[in-house]
Design a binder for these strands. Structure first.
Lengths: 245, 245
DNA sequence: GTCAAGAAGAATATACGATATATGATCTGC
DNA sequence: GCAGATCATATATCGTATATTCTTCTTGAC
């Protein structure tokens, strides 16, 4: 079998959770987004690289396919596989977003992320207020209830939070806004987990959520927008203090 | 060798342009987004599927890795590989976007796409007007010049158009907005190519582009926003008539 | 007799290694 | 400076072994 031969390989593969190629891809991706391998870096030749990592070439190749699909690397015969310039990365890919947060989000990253939210979500709140149907409204109310009950300190509460925003985006009846929201949500989820993983009591996020819900229920686009702006501003402030800036 | 054995394989692989796995991935992706294989569809077992397509299993697997990375499919042992529900697709991935247009964009798709542009780009124009520097302004002017010279009927002209919007997004100094714009641009580029591939004279798009440029040069965020709104509205109208709706 | 829980089996993706080919960057010669 | 040869490299194929998990059957209890 010899997954990790003699004294050889790095063998810090993260405990081999699921599929191997996925683990390898995650490992390489993390090293890339963390800046350990910077733009233009060429990886060792496949055969050598494979035995360094202690996996077969097929696994390594499939891992690189995933990274290629997300724009992180590109490989050409003879030239080898190299790290792409940042502008080629699929920054909105959920995985890429998650990896970046996992590797310690930079100040600029958080600024850009919340700025993007501020561009998209207030407008989306307007649209949701105009287009939502009764079923979505009920689901949103339920999501808020479970969110209030479990609070953001528990995974269930955070899931409800995500579900609420997802329903809101669903109410815009625009698939692409929904996709964008999904990407952002997964990113935010990580920061939220960090934020509430710390003990210094996080502020209660329910008031602004209820306010937003009310405006959407009332079909009031202008006020829904303002409520969303407030919500994002508070979330941004919370995240900043939680990450000590 | 035996890429396509006896009377067997489908062998309609699109002329084997670049890498094989890429071609296979594109073929499968196209069939998925076109609705030929709908949500929940399970593909044949790897061995069988590979010989149906006339490629090796490794190639097929690597192709599926790419599709998995983009959320189109997911595969588990014993269960096989199946098409994911649409809400799991990375709709903002440049490739996914391009594939969808290539397969004939639906009305809803175009509506969503331009709605997304209308949400993001006017705001981005505001930010660009406030944050652009002189270098970017010069590059934008050059892009407009070449765009005007070659017109949108030539690839060079279309490239200049894309470059102009890219520079605008770059001027927002927000990496994620830039990434989002890149995704949208590639999608729009395809429609633009179609639009100007038809003879019924396309309207001259330069006036609104120059107007937008002027407002950004003047650092006037409010007017830049309005100029962008106008530009998008016109583009949307053009696309709609070009695609006969 | 019906239903639920558990165990045996089978089909499948996953992983490994060896080998052959095509590509393109680099060097060589003119 | 340009054309061709060279050689390392990604690419592609095949055969085999393993791990997973869905299916099905059995077993047991109600």
């Amino acid at each position: 079998m010899a997954v990790n031969g003699s004294g050889e390989g790095s063998e810090m593969l993260p405990l081999l959770s699921g599929r191997l190629h996925h683990a390898v891809a995650q490992r390489l991706a993390t090293q890339i987004v963390s800046g350990e391998y910077l733009e233009g870096h060429v990886f060792p030749a496949e055969v050598e690289h494979a035995e360094i990592l202690g996996v077969s070439r097929s696994v390594l190749r499939e891992a690189f396919r995933m990274l290629t699909a997300k724009g992180l690397v590109s490989s050409r015969p003879k030239a080898g596989t190299r790290v792409n310039e940042r502008r080629k990365w699929n920054l909105l890919d959920p995985d890429v977003l998650a990896w970046q947060i996992q590797c310690g989000a930079s100040d600029e990253f958080l600024r850009d992320l919340f700025e993007l939210r501020m561009v998209v979500e207030p407008q989306a709140a307007e649209m949701a207020a105009l287009r939502r149907d009764e079923g979505q409204l009920i689901d949103m109310a339920n999501a808020l209830d479970t969110m209030e009950h479990y609070t953001l300190t528990s995974p269930k509460g955070r899931a409800a939070d995500i579900r609420f925003h997802e329903l809101l985006m669903e109410a815009t009846r625009n698939e692409m806004l929904l996709a964008l929201s999904n990407s952002i949500s997964t990113a935010i989820a990580s920061t939220t987990a960090i934020k509430h993983g710390m003990q210094d009591s996080p502020r209660d996020p329910m008031p602004e959520h209820h306010a937003l819900y009310t405006q959407i229920a009332d079909r009031n686009p202008a006020k829904a927008r303002k409520a969303m702006v407030t919500l994002i501003e508070l979330a941004h402030a919370d995240t900043r203090v939680a990450l000590r800036r």
